[in-house]
Design a protein around this nucleic acid. Sequence first.
DNA 1: GCTTGCCTTCGACCGCACTCGAAGTCCTAC
DNA 2: GTAGGACTTCGAGTGCGGTCGAAGGCAAGC
Lengths: 152, 152
Amino acid sequence: MSVTTDRLRGLIETTEGELPSLTVELVRDLEVHEQMSIAEVAELTGLSAHTLRYYERIGLVEVPRDAAGRRLYDREAVGRVVFITRLRDSDMPIAAIARYVELVKQGPGTEPERLALLEAHRDDILNRLRDLQGALAVVDYKITTYGGSCGS
Amino acid sequence: MSVTTDRLRGLIETTEGELPSLTVELVRDLEVHEQMSIAEVAELTGLSAHTLRYYERIGLVEVPRDAAGRRLYDREAVGRVVFITRLRDSDMPIAAIARYVELVKQGPGTEPERLALLEAHRDDILNRLRDLQGALAVVDYKITTYGGSCGS
DNA sequence: GCTTGCCTTCGACCGCACTCGAAGTCCTAC
DNA sequence: GTAGGACTTCGAGTGCGGTCGAAGGCAAGC
């Protein structure tokens, strides 16, 4: 589905059976340099440079600049982008991600709300999984019994 | 997630272990009368009347009318709508659904393409499932180890 | 010193899937 | 016969998440 996920999936699968995969680990495994250009981060994440600028514009990441004003993603910024990508891949709305990031910015004391946000999202994912499994059953049935009207 | 799925989920779960659930069975189990008004179909599927008209407008369903020109959904139309809803719940794009419906309209001979369409969509669903499971692992990890920055 | 090419900002635009509003029609109940 | 409510068509508007283009800056290589 998403390019990012395709790129990261292998890494996840290699750690299966161990702890659930961790963005930080993924970032460590992928080649993250201390300073990355927007093109490199785009290449790394599968997002377009446009999208990366967009994420910054709406406040999801803060990205340091070089002397000439060009973006130089540091390890933290890259980690953030990868994390956001993960959440987007699971259809978390940008607004919710923005809220989460906002809470992180506000610092300690906001953990309960952050946790609540993640738990709500976790429920969304579980529902989505069930939806998809249901739909998969229908499509599979259609495929295996293929005769093919479309109201049946 | 979707209202329709919420309503139908129970029915699916009751048939677990048997054959994969079938739209036609769902339709039989839900109370489908021979003639239903748009309001009744909306109530049944969880779609809005607006959305039902929209689906018809773009050619996804043909709906009979009564003498006064009002929509009177018959069993076939209702089945079609439920099937479409299932596909939409799994994020199949309207355009692909429209293509499928088009093939059904064209009648016999189009089965191979229909099948290919369904199989492609099946692959999409499987990828989506993997994406979601990956994202779930990340979110779960975040929740269980909760300390909370967002690049980690 | 000039071309090449990636970078910058900014605002406008796009595609998807609805969603809504206006204006009018038709049946039912009073 | 008239008020109410659910229906009709049509076209326009909305929200989301990007996506793009224009106009210009800066550094490296020729």
